[in-house]
Design a protein around this nucleic acid. Structure first.
Lengths: 234, 234
DNA sequence: GGATCCAATTGGTCCTACCAATTTAGCGGG
DNA sequence: CCCGCTAAATTGGTAGGACCAATTGGATCC
């Protein structure tokens, strides 16, 4: 990648530390040396160290706690999510577009999950369903269970890229999912999930994908309706 | 979004400046006030200003030139891509997994492109095909044309999220694509692309998706073969 | 009018001192 | 011996000054 030589110190140091982390010399959760120590070891002022660590933190590679230290953060895709969020605000990407991408990914996920799911994962899915069908649980709990269902499904593909790609999309769509749940109730989501669940349980890949498409179609229609209402008032 | 209150000064200032930029008060290319001026205006030390600006620069919102000043950078979504790329690289996912995700996205892309493509986009596709079928062009040119073909297709969906999701994946798979081109020659890629092209031209969504799946299957088989060879030597 | 040089402006680095959380070690009482 | 409290050491966070280095813009000179 042509990231031009970066003749300034902080960029150098940032790269150096980044390499140190990504090379595996430092595991997730390990503490980096203290800023004053790094300053001496690397032969630059503490300001440079601080700016470098700040940049690493801003891209989610490290996290610092006052008085405690700085350690490498658990990679979670959350930084990517905020990046996407920023881009969304900036370039005004409509949520409908995101929903389309989600539909594409999730139908593949359902299909693959049906082929690769393990029994414990099946139980996890059942657990989220138990929450969703329980009317005594709060709306927030229902939303969480809904998200969990899809997350477990992504896990069950056995392909680690799917969770990484899906997480930020889910985060961005969480609002719309909440509205959909409010509008149509958890019962509908439960019955949809149940159809998917049965297909995954019986390892019927195409049925799982079809059920997923049907499930997400509700959300898409809702988004489109809102978009239409919005454009009317413009 | 629940981005915890961020009690430290630099986070505050970073958010403040970010808001200032994204709200449109500062257009792309505009210069921010000098660090010393910002320091005084916002009532914090220059160190804080510098760290905040550094973070903004590291996520691609601003760019600083020594002696000149700091201005808001042209938004390109590229920073998001490299963020994604970093994450994927970091988590050490097998290329086969990436190829699967790519297949999922690209088949949807082909389908949507068939419905939404414009005539100029069709011409762009044809142009990359002209390069690919020209044996006088270098291998690098062929790889570029191949990448371009898929990029234009992603554009043609009219959904700006697809390019964003696909770009980092393409970047990570560029090596394997090069090897595939070497192994099977540009002619095969050309004929596959041609099938996709015809389907997109005639707005046949399902044919486009099918042709795309067939196209990428070659790549997948190649990757699997390499993975198998690798595991033998382990 | 054009080229050259110089001074003001601006980002980049270093340093030192101090503030504020956190952790750790030590002390004392039970 | 153990628990709880306190104080010191460690660590990140902020401030502010001094200086270096690149860029810019104007004044000067031809």
């Amino acid at each position: 990648m042509h990231v031009k030589s970066a003749s300034d110190r902080v960029s150098e140091i940032t790269l150096q530390l980044e390499r140190l982390i990504l090379s595996g010399d430092l595991a997730v959760g390990d503490y980096l040396p203290a800023e004053r120590a790094l300053s001496e070891q690397l032969g630059v002022s503490r300001s440079v160290i601080r700016e470098a660590l700040g940049r690493l933190t801003s891209i989610g590679l490290t996290e610092s706690r006052h008085g405690s230290g700085t350690r490498v953060a658990t990679p979670s895709g959350r930084e990517i999510s905020v990046g996407y969020e920023r881009l969304l605000r900036n370039s005004d990407v409509p949520l409908e577009d995101l929903a389309v991408v989600r539909l594409s990914l999730e139908s593949t996920i359902a299909s693959l999950a049906a082929s690769h799911r393990t029994d414990p994962q099946l139980q996890q899915l059942a657990a989220t369903q138990a929450v969703l069908v329980n009317p005594r649980k709060s709306l927030a709990a229902h939303v969480k269970a809904d998200a969990e269902f899809h997350a477990v499904l992504a896990e069950a593909t056995g392909n680690r890229v799917f969770p990484l790609m899906l997480t930020p999309i889910h985060d961005l769509l969480t609002d719309s999912r909440l509205k959909t749940l409010k509008r149509y109730g958890a019962a509908l989501a439960y019955s949809h999930h149940q159809k998917i669940f049965e297909a995954v349980r019986s390892r019927d890949a195409s049925a799982a994908a079809a059920a997923m498409r049907e499930h997400l179609a509700v959300n898409s229609r809702h988004l489109e309706a809102m978009a239409a209402a919005r454009s009317k008032t413009d």
